[in-house]
Amino acid sequence: EHKIILYENPNFTGKKMEIIDDDVPSFHAHGYQEKVSSVRVQSGTWVGYQYPGYRGLQYLLEKGDYKDSSDFGAPHPQVQSVRR
């Protein structure tokens, strides 16, 4: 199983989107239009992308907690697509 939770604010606060065993080419299409400032990967390895359609900067997200976007190497809290 692959499970990831994306949070609007640092330290796992604010609006969140939970994804289980699915690739998401556009967070906006899924109704999530917030920034991504923290991430909790509960299982599996994911790649987050700066822009929709798996474009832009890529961020490797392995199991663990990323309490701020800088923890996974993002210069800005901008992640708009993700895949396993």
Score class of each variant (00 low, 15 high):
Q33Y: 15
E8W: 00
Y49D: 15
K16R: 07
P25E: 10
M17K: 04
H30E: 13
H76Y: 14
D65G: 09
H2V: 00
Q78C: 15
P10T: 10
K3W: 00
Q42T: 11
I5M: 03
K63M: 02
T45K: 04
R84E: 15
K16T: 05
K35E: 06
Y59D: 03
S43E: 11
S70W: 10
D65T: 04
S26G: 08
I19L: 14
Y49L: 04
M17G: 00
S69I: 15
S70M: 08
I19C: 03
P10E: 07
I5L: 02
G64A: 06
E34F: 15
E18A: 00
K35C: 12
Q42P: 05
W46E: 00
R84I: 02
G64N: 02
K63R: 08
V79S: 01
V36F: 08
V79W: 03
P10Q: 07
R84C: 05
P10V: 03
Y7T: 02
S37F: 05
Q33R: 12
Q33L: 14
G44M: 00
H30Y: 12
K15N: 13
S38M: 09
T45V: 11
V47D: 04
L61E: 00
D68T: 11
P77C: 10
V24S: 06
F12K: 01
H30S: 13
A29F: 10
I4C: 05
S38Y: 00
E1W: 02
P52R: 03
Y54C: 04
Q78K: 06
D71M: 14
K15I: 05
S37T: 12
S43W: 04
F12P: 00
E34S: 10
S69H: 15
V39G: 02
R55Q: 12
Y54D: 08
S38T: 04
S69F: 13
Y54S: 01
H76T: 07
Y7F: 10
I19Y: 01
K63S: 09
F27A: 03
P77E: 14
T45E: 08
D22R: 12
S69N: 10
D21G: 04
G64C: 01
Q58I: 04
D71L: 09
S69A: 13
H30F: 10
V36R: 01
H30R: 15
Y66C: 01
E1I: 13
G64M: 02
H2K: 11
S70Y: 04
D23V: 01
F27N: 02
Y7L: 00
K35Q: 10
E18C: 15
G31M: 06
H2C: 02
V39H: 08
R40W: 05
D71Y: 05
I19Q: 10
L6G: 04
T45Y: 05
A29P: 05
R55K: 14
E62A: 10
V47F: 11
S43A: 14
R40I: 13
D68H: 07
S26W: 12
S26F: 13
V24C: 15
S38A: 11
A74N: 12
P52V: 04
P52M: 04
P52T: 05
S38D: 05
T45N: 07
S43D: 02
A74P: 06
L60D: 12
E34P: 09
S37L: 10
S70Q: 13
K35S: 11
P25Y: 04
E62K: 10
Y7W: 10
P77S: 11
L61H: 03
I20W: 02
R84Q: 06
T45P: 02
I5G: 06
P52E: 12
N9W: 09
K3C: 09
A74T: 15
P25F: 01
D68N: 04
E34Y: 07
P77A: 08
G31L: 08
T45D: 09
P25C: 11
R55T: 09
P25S: 10
H2R: 08
R55N: 05
D23G: 01
D21T: 02
Q42R: 10
I5Q: 03
K63E: 14
V39L: 12
K67D: 06
R40H: 05
Y49A: 06
D65P: 01
D22S: 11
V79P: 07
L61G: 01
G31F: 04
D23Q: 00
S38E: 03
Q58W: 05
H30V: 12
F27D: 04
Y7I: 00
K35H: 10
K16P: 10
K3F: 04
R55A: 06
E62G: 05
E62Y: 13
V39F: 15
D68V: 15
V36W: 13
V41E: 03
S70G: 10
I19V: 15
N9P: 00
Y66G: 06
V79N: 02
Y54P: 01
L57W: 09
Q50M: 02
S37N: 06
D65N: 10
K63C: 10
G31E: 09
A74W: 07
F27Y: 06
P52F: 00
I4L: 11
Y59L: 05
L61C: 01
Q78D: 14
D68P: 11
K67R: 07
